[in-house]
């Protein structure tokens, strides 16, 4: 479990990035953090890995205060895929890149080999095993960063803006990956502007603005709160906006995103 207890974070230049944030994320939850640029989303998740330490308050990861632990130690529990994969790729080959963290954590050579092979298969990167990670496409690099994390099997996976620079197919694959992570009991935290990407996943959504939490709840409810989203400068999913524009009758069930097409077709017939 991850727990933020009244956490504030002030940058060296005096800017308040987090302002008395309190939030609990249970093990196995999939949580999306949304908000405009500078809302404090990335600052929030950097506290989970211990890359940033709170100015006041405390952050607990499985009961461990992040201030009492190094990032390297916390990263055994928490894996982060940063926005720009070029910020981490450096090895001569894809397999070496994947093995980097495993060796840092002291895995045996046999286990490293097994985990690397498993990760490459899982993310469809086997053919690039001996290639330089620097020659991969943007989508492949992103998948490689995810594979690198999955290889050491952390309990918490954080994805910071995973859809940046990804085409539609890659986004769909990412959706599948996040669902898969959720189904295997991982805690998944996704930081994203991309509401259309988040909507099918139906995560718990935390809306942030100016370092504060404006809203927290299931996507199906929170995404209907137009005023809240508007004040946080977050767009509504098109399906929800469309549904609200249709002026639904009280009897209409709110649509499950997977049933959307059938619902819209039924509604059109009624009209």
């Amino acid at each position: 479990m991850i727990e933020f207890q009244d956490v504030s974070f002030v940058h060296q230049n005096g800017v308040i990035a987090l302002d008395r944030v309190s939030v609990k994320i249970e093990a196995g939850e999939t949580v999306a953090i949304v908000g405009e640029n500078g809302a404090g989303k990335t600052t929030l998740v950097k506290h989970v890995t211990g890359l940033l330490k709170p100015s006041t308050g405390s952050v607990l990861v499985d009961g461990i205060d992040t201030r009492a632990s190094s990032t390297a130690a916390l990263s055994r529990k928490v894996g982060v895929a940063f926005q720009n994969p070029d910020h981490q790729l450096f090895s001569e080959s894809v397999e070496e890149e994947m093995a980097f963290a495993l060796r840092n954590f002291g895995f045996t050579a046999e286990l490293v080999e097994n985990r690397v092979s498993w990760g490459l298969r899982l993310f469809g990167l086997e053919e690039y095993r001996k290639s330089s990670p620097l020659v991969l496409s943007g989508g492949e690099k992103k998948r490689l960063t995810l594979a690198c994390i999955m290889a050491w099997d952390p309990d918490v996976v954080i994805l910071d803006e995973p859809t940046v620079g990804q085409d539609a197919i890659q986004k769909e694959k990412l959706t599948g990956t996040i669902r898969m992570l959720g189904s295997t009991g991982k805690t998944v935290i996704v930081v994203s502007h991309d509401i259309e990407f988040l909507w099918p996943i139906q995560p718990r959504v935390v809306v942030m603005k100016e370092g504060r939490i404006l809203g927290d709840g299931p996507a199906s409810r929170l995404m209907q709160e137009r005023e809240l989203l508007s004040s946080a400068r977050v767009a509504q999913p098109q399906l929800v906006a469309f549904y609200q524009a249709l002026d639904p009758r009280p009897k209409d069930p709110f649509v499950d995103p997977l049933e959307a097409r059938r619902w819209v077709a039924g509604r059109a017939e009624i009209t």
């Binding site: 890359l51 190094s70 990032t71 390297a72 990263s75 894996g79 940063f82 720009n84 981490q88 840092n104």
Partner: peptide, 12 residues
């Protein structure tokens, strides 16, 4: 940012 990314992969 690179230091953050590598520290998150267990680099001390």
């Amino acid at each position: 940012q690179i230091m953050d990314a590598q520290k998150s992969r267990g680099l001390e």
